[in-house]
Amino acid sequence: MKTAMHQDKHPNESGHNHDDHRHAEDTDTTRLILAVVFNGLITAAEFVAGIVAGSLTLLADAAHNLSDTASMGTSLIARKISSREADARRTFGYERAELIGAFINLLTLILIALYLIFEAVKRYFNPTTIDGTLMIWVGLATLLGNVATAFVLHKPSQDSLNIRSAFVHIVADALGSVAVVVGGVLILWYDWTLIDPILTVLIACYILIHSYKMLRETISILMESAPRDFDIEAMAAEIEKMVGVLNIHHIHVWRLDESRVALEAHVAIQGVSDLDALEQLKMRIKDRLRSGYGVDHATLEFEFGACTDEGAFNREHPADEASAPAHPQHE
């Protein structure tokens, strides 16, 4: 006989906490809207100035800013979708929409960085006249705008890969603005036009490094990987020490999103003869999974006989095979 036990929500999720969480999400959304507006104005100014000044660095930064505005728009749409309640088709809710938004943003960033490197190489071999004075003034103006936008996004970026990807866009923009100012000074004082493509490459490398790190984490969650610090062997060994538990197998651990961890497993039990004792054992296991391993959603299938399921991650139980032949493990 098998029985499935489910843990659908954290016991501490009160209505008050839910309202607080919703208010925080609304505030973060407002900040994201402001960031889109700020960045849109910066982009328009840089495109005009880049054409007038003949600066690749300015145009590159403007193109980057344009992608940022689009990416923050993507983040905003993804955030709106993620706020929907769970339904019959999306039983875990829509929060992974933000991860998809982050994935799109990061891929866009990487493509832009590669394009900037390509354009910088072309400019290196074909230098042009550049207005250093205009570069300096526009760089200072956009730097102030980028700093303001980064300030708006900093707090919500701590809890969302989606917004963090937009935040990295803005930090890269701020660095680009600094590069524009530095480039303008060197061009104005020393007529060193080669600094324009050199700074462009540096900006692109910064974008590639940070985008790659976040892209790895985003893909890890989308691939339903276990958290990096989750020790499955230690967890299983601890659960198997509980009275009534023979072993735990067919273990699946994955991240539902950036903040929630889910687990499902088969638990072979012995010496538990009534439903009350079974319910108490279930609660002890789930409480330990929650408090010790951060598992927010657990599904446990209790087994009283041989396990017949195949195709899941299993652990070796040499001691169990000798002591309990009634519960063979199918590896």
Rank of each mutant, 00 (worst) to 15 (best):
S165E: 10
Y206D: 05
N17Y: 07
A226P: 06
L114V: 11
E279M: 08
A298D: 13
W189P: 04
K80Y: 02
N12R: 10
T200R: 01
G93H: 11
E233I: 06
H266N: 05
E310L: 12
L222D: 04
F103P: 03
V185L: 14
Y115S: 14
A63T: 06
T3K: 13
A4M: 12
I269H: 10
K286V: 13
Q7N: 14
G139Y: 07
A49S: 03
D231Y: 01
E238G: 02
K2M: 07
D231Q: 06
S67Y: 07
S323Y: 05
V182E: 07
L188A: 04
H16T: 09
S165W: 05
K80C: 13
A268L: 11
F151G: 00
I77W: 13
S55H: 02
I51H: 03
S323M: 15
A265V: 11
T108V: 09
E217R: 10
P328G: 10
V201R: 08
P318W: 08
E279A: 12
L215M: 14
H250F: 14
E258A: 05
V245M: 07
L202Y: 10
A319S: 14
I81G: 06
L32F: 03
V245S: 05
L106K: 04
T200F: 09
A150S: 01
V295T: 12
V178S: 02
N146G: 12
A226V: 04
A62H: 10
K282A: 15
